[in-house]
Design a protein around this nucleic acid. Sequence first.
RNA 1: GCCGAAGUGGCGGAACUGGCAGACGCGCCGGACUCAAAAUCCGGUGGGGCUAACACCUCGUGCGGGUUCGAUUCCCGCCUUCGGCACCA
Length: 863
Amino acid sequence: MTLKYDPQEIEVKWQEVWEREKTFVVLNPSQDGVDPGTEASSTYVLEMFPYPSGSAHVGHVKNYIVGDVIARVRRHQGKRVLHPMGYDAFGLNSENVAIQTGEHPAAFTERAISTINRQLRRLGVSIDWTRELATSRPEYYKWTQWLFVQFYNKGLAYKKAAPVNWCPSCQTVLANEQVIEQRCERCDTEVETKKLEQWFFRITDYAERLLEDFDKLESWPERVITMQRNWIGRSQGAEVVFQIAPLNSEQFPGVEDLCGSEEMTVFTTRPDTLFGATFFILAPEHPLLEDLVAGLPRQEEVMRYARRAMNTPQFERANAEKEKTGVFTGRYAVNPVNGQDIPIYVAHYVLMEYGTGAIMAVPAHDERDFEFAKKFDLPIIEVISSPEELKNQAGEMAEAYAGEGRMVNSPGFEGLSKEEGIEKVTQWLKEQGKADFAVNYKLRDWLVSRQRYWGAPIPIVYCETCGEVPVPAQELPVLLPEISDYAPKGRSPLAAAEDWVSTACPRCGSETARRETDTMDTFVDSSWYYLRYVSPWRDDVAWDREAANYWLPVDQYIGGVEHAILHLMYARFFTKVLYDLGLVDFEEPFRNLFTQGMIYYKGAKMSKSKGNVVSPDEYVPRYGADALRAYVLFMGPAESDVEWSDQGIEGIHRFLQRVWRQVTEAIEAGWFGTPLAGTTFSAGPLPEPEALTADERALLVKTNQVIEKVTGDIVGRFHFNTALAAIMELNNEISAAKGDGAGLAATETGRRVLIESLESLIRLLEPFAPHMCAELWGLLGRERIWEEPWLEADERFLEHDTVEIAVQINGKVRDRAEVPAEAGKDEILAAAKELPGVQRHLEGKAIVKEIVVPGKLVNLVVR
RNA sequence: GCCGAAGUGGCGGAACUGGCAGACGCGCCGGACUCAAAAUCCGGUGGGGCUAACACCUCGUGCGGGUUCGAUUCCCGCCUUCGGCACCA
């Protein structure tokens, strides 16, 4: 063998060709000489951009390999493909390195970027590198800041003092979405609650549209939608007004009722259970609590409890065995449906952040209220007919019943169903001005300020006379100041840069204005990067409007499911705001989403701290990028988590070598002639089916079936593993059909058929192993395989002449019949009954039923 | 606790719409080549039974039921694993 498979040499060679020829660079419609074509001819394939933390491991690159196969196939299908790359480059990792080493985060970040850039290029990922961006560069974050100002001007960015999640290790606040089981998403430290002045984005205003617009998505994994839906947590019900019973002046002489005859509103999803509301609870933080108990004997006890509950860290308040605690305030509320006074308690299980911070308690039909009522010996009244098995001998409720039932003990509403009751009771109270239909969400506003250095500075200036002033567009970007100490101290490191903090007011020019020193959550940066890719070179606009409309929304987005809520929901929110601001013409950024699974190694997620990282830099030199690409896709279904295996990549490497040998041996045998330089090989037309032998037709049928299978697996299902398995089968079948001396290789038409199959094999394998296939294509006298149209199956060769039919007796396969493909039911049945294996089982039995599935099987039911 | 996904050979996995369970790859076993080894090539490989052998029979997709001529696939109940949420009224 003279042609050796040397992946290193081949891969670098073709990467240089693609670079030189600008193969993957696409132009925008406004750029010179570009015919924008129809909308159907352009497509945007995007993988979630990487966070440059040093170097990428195989788990990271799987994302880009999956995207690359899709991008390459779409190019073959005649699309103009936008497939860009960038870096989510602000963030804690670089900053922590800076704290340790004193090196500027920008220097570390740019170094990490060039490492990942090199890794991706070496894998032959087909990226338009002219559009590369990094969120930490001023030319990018200028526009992040500009967008903040647009949000601000629309009233969607605001500052408020609120109890926030504080990570004592990262020394910064976190968004709700970044807190997992009361721990910091990044460093796993238990978060604390702090009351701080912070910037928020009003994502709650978009809760309803974030839910509704799931309908506008073409194909998203159902579980991602479910996770977002649960996170948004929409509840439908009513707001109900309870009067506070005035203080009894005889009982408490001389005590001034600071509340007067005020009222309190609660949110409930079950207004149908109002007749069972036997007490009322306030959150410890409730603003009315202090006035409510002022001057009462219980004042001190109540306020002590409230203070303790508020100071209890959230994680204890949430867990603590869910043991209910609370204190009676001494005051009463009036149940609006029956005028009854019910006691007002304060209890920690009522949260100020949700609803109104006050609830009506219906112990018979709410588990938590039931528990509380039991502990404090409060009345439990059944108002929805409940199953007898939930009651004790005395007919009292033994546990809460939240299910369906008819209303009871509810004068005027007896017998109504849950649904009718909710509607009727609310309507009745609404007419008296005591209630209204209402919707509540679990979703909270997005906390975007961070007390860290390595992020985009929030572009706000505080002026003594003008107050908050957004930095005008012409003064953007607000550049990060140079500082010497990056270590967090509970306030933003930017605050130490006095020269920078002290500034002129953009509005009145006062010299005593001061800059906001917090930076933005990095999820702000990644909420709009897909837009910047359409024109990253523009310094006068955030994106070229025409180009954005041409390319967007993203046709296929690919990334890890770990971003199901955070990034994907924020990006959807951003797009909706931008639509409302008239900056884009679409409401959803990602039409189709594919979430790929993770690669585990030694039973765990790869991480530097665990020391179980598999680097492409280790395997590319050994097996080549093509083997790594193919292996990552062959490991298992792309969407599921799989375990890395050194033996697995070895197997794929052997497969690539078999293909290489099979093709180069054919070339050396002269099947492809000896093309002169500058000419291309042409095999001539394929003979008509009738002119071929059965074996020749069989190989072509296999070839075309594989073309169909591979296309369907890649385009329709993202099942790259089975696509590769089919390609392997084709390779095996070609080598079996070729034969040594007596096979297809022995005749002219046989060789013509083999050439057809080999060419198909190379073209089908090309998205997976683009370098090797480009090389083989060149060796057999062709050019630029990446410009070839995608293969389509030849209808004449999709069906075998005969098919094998499994014949079952009582559901068990007893024999197989070979029948013509077009055989009818009767013919199949007759052939089936002839079979010896069938005859044997029919002896002495009577056929009761005959089932024939043409092309598949026959089942004879006998008795 | 609630919601969701999954459970198939020694291993990764396949079977797309209820129709031949185990494709493809790994590993293992046997053979060819070799002085030998590696590489490569050829053959075998779910368990059990019965065979001199070919064959044949039988069990088998987490467990227990059901629907069906036929179930890895659909339905009911349970077990295990993973993911999400977790006092959200």
